[in-house]
Design a protein around this nucleic acid. Structure first.
Lengths: 258, 258
DNA sequence: CCAAAAGTGTTCTTGTTACACCCATGA
DNA sequence: TCATGGGTGTAACAAGAACACTTTTGG
């Protein structure tokens, strides 16, 4: 049972005029040339005896910001990350999604209306892990990257959100050409193939992959080779940004907020 | 400025315990062998002098129902339609989306908290128009089908929602094989081609279309022809439901609610 | 016999799959 | 000289695009 004042009214308890019924959650995937990871935070437990729980970075939406703005703000506040293109993929609204006993202590500590029903709007993003060094904020004890194949039990319905986010990511990655910011400026075709294989979770034939990718005319061979490797050094390439832009490869069809 | 009681509290003014911050809107597309239409309702104006405004069927979510349930309930209550597979496609959360002066009168008449910020979760569906006879409810003066090329100015941000719904519909229609319930049981290849052309808003070559569709093995030719037409009568077909089911053609990958 | 829509085949190009061996380097 | 990953070509097949004339019916 709860009672609240929102909107134009500013509740004195609550410097941040939050909407108690709507949140955003961010499924940020990070690629590190080896594995696909997802960004998690560890909730600060109520008291030290309670085992801390992991969760997606997410929080209530403020009354005067859009959903896109909220997603960017929340990610920045909880993890320090900014300048990441977040793409909305689904709203989760099961009436019981914040009612599990495992989440009660956290809700009572951090939410003004712990009983409020919360619908969450989920966003995903894909970044180069080493470009971003997430840092824990006051709300979270830790922020860490976690292999998508090894996600622990998370708060609320966040495991389901991760799964649906992954599905969306893979669908989008195969359909459009997202994810070209994930490699070093100069890279080899094998690195690119590994990127494709890790994200789509499929294997490709080396010759066919190279044929296909070179045919698309989005790579520029450089007058350089790998150095210091203990095998035949590979040709280095960079992306043809002009071509990619024409194909609408960057950031879907919406506009960046931050 | 508003104050409210929700959730476990049942407000005596409000037999239906609605969440003031979250709504659902339904973009129901109807195909009538000629055109693609969208289902609209006409809002009951506050007083007779105000020009009535059209809108998508939509309303606030109840505290104890899921978003999918809400979408189905709202559509049924406002238009009488049920048994329609609704698919969530996007949440709209601009803080100003219910702040336009054009919508003030309606909000003040029908909403307990007219100032509340409302995030809406939009659903789309595609049905055979003549299978459904929408009927106006107490909340709406009229319910009617409207050619998607001629949508009038709508309440709130509903024009934008229709546009995004159409984009989603077309993308899904081309990707998967939805929409096979839209033709009569027995139909001609020309009818099927017209369906494709109207929904995707493209033209196809007759020979190539037939080759492609027959190759897929989803049609069964019937020992029957058209009758009473003033030209060469066409072969009739029916769908190979067994094949279609295997291809996962029906209703995406989620489960029907009602 | 006319109007109207049905029905039909070929060619060209492009993309997809499957598959196995030699090459350049540093240790 | 060896281990390691880099680099290459061909054949078979499937899918997509372009294109024009004959057929059957009712009026």
């Amino acid at each position: 049972m709860y009672n609240r004042a929102t909107s134009i009214t500013c509740n004195s308890m609550n410097s941040k005029n939050l909407n108690p019924n709507v949140s955003v959650d961010c499924v940020v995937f990070g690629f590190d040339n080896e594995r696909l990871n997802v960004l998690l935070i560890e909730q600060k437990p109520l008291n030290k005896s309670i085992k801390p729980q992991s969760a997606l970075p997410g929080d209530l939406v403020m009354e005067d910001e859009s959903l896109d703005q909220a997603a960017n703000r929340v990610l920045r506040e909880l993890t320090g990350l900014k300048g990441i293109y977040l793409c909305q993929f689904k709203a989760f609204g099961d009436p019981q999604r914040v009612r599990d006993v495992k989440d009660l202590a956290w809700l009572q500590t951090y939410r003004e209306y712990p009983q409020a029903r919360v619908i969450t709007v989920a966003y995903y993003a894909l970044v180069k892990m080493h470009d971003f060094s997430p840092e824990a904020s006051s709300f979270a004890d830790k922020v860490y990257w976690c292999d998508v194949h090894n996600v622990p039990p998370l708060a609320f319905d966040h495991n389901q959100i991760v799964i649906e986010g992954l599905k969306t990511l893979r669908r989008e990655f195969e359909a459009h050409r997202i994810g070209f910011e994930l490699l070093p400026k100069k890279f080899t075709l094998s690195q690119l193939q590994r990127l494709y294989e890790i994200i789509t979770d499929k294997k490709f034939d080396k010759r066919n992959f190279r044929k296909k990718i070179l045919r698309e005319n989005i790579l520029i061979p450089l007058p350089e080779k790998q150095q210091g490797v203990l095998h035949k050094p590979a040709q280095l390439y960079e992306f043809n940004l002009r071509e990619l832009a024409e194909l609408g490869a960057f950031n879907g069809d919406t506009v960046e907020i931050y």
